[in-house]
């Protein structure tokens, strides 16, 4: 069945999952966006924890290298970094594979997106987590050391739980950034929510149906995240005295 021209289809039908609707492509884009945001954020968190401990307790060379990493990444627009890393990451990987005698591989765009945005997130999270660790009372760490606690146990039992409450507002902001930064992958042609929206609206000319719908989807992500983060923060701050009382 051929669809009637888009101008004769109602907005609800355009957004729907029917034969003439773009619902499936939008939901697929949304799913891609969420998967990339989650992956990039998790990768960034691993880099951030490692980077923060490296910056605080690492050797002089490690400290300088991490300082260069966080400064460079935070000074260059994400879009430029995505382009550089997008070509460098796939190019370097293929060059290594070729030199070892393997064939070229095509890396899935999702993996590339996660790695690239994860490296960007890592730089910002390093700084936030470092600040969170610095705000842990020194006496706590001294006490743990005086008790002869091994440093890994100390990180797991003392530093990280107390750091969590201090770093959460910053980390929450970075999560919201991660969800919005997935839109940048639209520029390199990856079909996440923003790209799906733009192609749907370009072929139907129903700009004021698809863009507000996509905005609503992004808003739903950010509002539910804010709600969840509020709960997590309450949990992380358990046992802390309320400043107001």
């Amino acid at each position: 069945m051929a669809c009637p021209p888009p101008s004769q289809i109602s907005a609800l039908e355009l957004l729907g999952f029917g034969e003439c609707g773009w619902g499936i492509s939008l939901v697929w884009g949304l799913g891609n966006s969420i998967v990339i945001a989650l992956g990039a954020y998790s990768l960034g968190f691993l880099i951030g924890i490692g980077g923060a401990f490296g910056k605080l307790y690492g050797g002089p060379i490690l400290k300088d290298l991490l300082a260069a990493y966080t400064t460079l990444v935070r000074a260059v627009p994400e879009l430029v970094l995505i382009l550089i890393l997008f070509y460098a990451f796939t190019g370097a990987l293929n060059e290594i594979l070729l030199s070892w005698g393997y064939d070229r591989i095509e890396i899935s765009p999702i993996v590339t997106g996660i790695v690239v945005l994860g490296l960007v997130q890592g730089a910002y999270q390093t700084e936030v987590i470092r600040g969170g660790i610095l705000a842990v009372p020194v006496g706590q760490l001294e006490a743990a050391r005086a008790m002869g606690m091994p440093s890994l146990t100390m990180a797991r039992r003392i530093t990280l739980p107390q750091m969590a409450a201090n770093a959460l507002p910053g980390l929450a902001n970075l999560w919201l950034n991660a969800t919005k930064d997935t839109a940048l992958l639209a520029v390199i042609g990856f079909s996440e929510l923003t790209r799906a929206t733009s192609s749907a609206s370009a072929s139907t000319k129903a700009f004021f149906v698809f863009y507000p719908a996509a905005m609503a989807l992004y808003l739903i992500i950010s509002l539910t995240s804010t709600l969840l983060i509020g709960r997590i923060e309450k949990w992380a701050r358990r046992g802390q005295r309320d400043v107001r009382t």
Binding site: L176, K180, D181, T182, A183, L184, A186, V187, T194, T197, S198, S201, A202, K205, F207, F208, Y211, P212, A214, M215, Y218, L219, S222, L223
Partner: peptide
């Protein structure tokens, strides 16, 4: 403030340019 901070800037730019630009 919530809408601006909760949606990607790229989407806002495209909405203004392609949306209003077509209207």
């Amino acid at each position: 403030c919530t809408v601006i901070r909760g949606t990607p800037l790229l989407l806002q730019i495209w909405l203004l340019y392609y949306g209003l630009g077509s209207l």
